[in-house]
Nucleic acid binder design. Structure first.
Lengths: 147, 147
DNA sequence: AAATATAGTCAAGCTGCTTGACCATTTACG
DNA sequence: CGTAAATGGTCAAGCAGCTTGACTATATTT
């Protein structure tokens, strides 16, 4: 593979990721929520059982101060709340409110809608294959802006 | 495809794009250049015959003021220079210097190196297929941070 | 029980972007 | 043609989201 091809692959990957992120966020906003792109991925981490600020920071690939600010914001807007952590008095468990769950579902719907456009082009099998391949490359890296 | 899968696909795509971008930038820095991730993609646009600030802005998906600032920076650091545009006295053609070309080649090498890790996991054919599929999804969108 | 590590917050600062205003040139049109 | 509108570029100011640094409170280690 030529060097220039590798850079083109990177560019295409970034373009696809940016496009998808934009579409998801647009879809979430269209469903009546006031959200930033990062929120969807924060919510995905909070969804099952909540998370601490530090865990969230790791997931998003930012400092805990930045994660704390993000939590401030989603708490202020009513998507989550801070509770005392059941097992550690230093920590606080951030959990989604009902509104937070609704927004999470909206993000999932919007993502499905955006991906559907891909399925129309590539077919379901190819999209699955795409996901499977990407999963083998970047299994569990932090979810953060590309630069 | 379930909604939650679609969001997971988005997350994986972002993780892969972020990982690759990081690796490329690290590689460029390791080769002795002082560069930001966006520069590589700016250089790729400038490489063949130069470009105007406005064209660059479109390519990167930012305002022309932001593109102009980026050009200021790469000019100050000796990677490019502004020349009068041959056909339009309002415009200025931004072209790479020799140092700019060297940095571009370094970015391509670093990208190839990063992609090589993917080839080791997936095999050459799969990586090509990946690129081909992504190309059909996001043919020529702006190259910009995911959020 | 003393030392060290960890969860979280407050405060200040920086970077890269945006919006708004403006000038110079080019293009469109009456 | 000549004038109005569009376009390329820059300057200036402001801002959002992040970082580093400092600090408190609780937990863990020795």
């Amino acid at each position: 593979m030529q060097n220039s091809e590798a850079l083109a692959l990177a560019a295409t990957l970034l373009a696809a990721a940016g496009d998808l992120t934009q579409r998801i966020n647009d879809g979430v906003v269209a469903r009546g929520f006031e959200a930033r792109p990062a929120w969807g991925f924060a919510f995905a981490r909070l969804a099952p059982d909540g998370a601490t600020v530090t865990e969230l920071a790791g997931h998003l690939g930012v400092t805990k101060q930045a994660a704390s600010q993000l939590v401030d914001e989603i708490v202020r807007k009513g998507y989550a709340e801070r509770r005392p952590h059941p097992a550690d008095a230093r920590a606080r468990l951030v959990v989604l409110t009902e509104r937070g769950w609704a927004c999470t579902r909206a993000a999932e719907e919007a993502a499905a809608e955006a991906v559907r456009a891909w399925v129309d082009v590539l077919g379901e099998g190819e999209v699955r294959a795409l996901r499977e391949r990407l999963g083998r490359i970047a299994p569990y890296g932090p979810i953060r802006p590309a630069w």
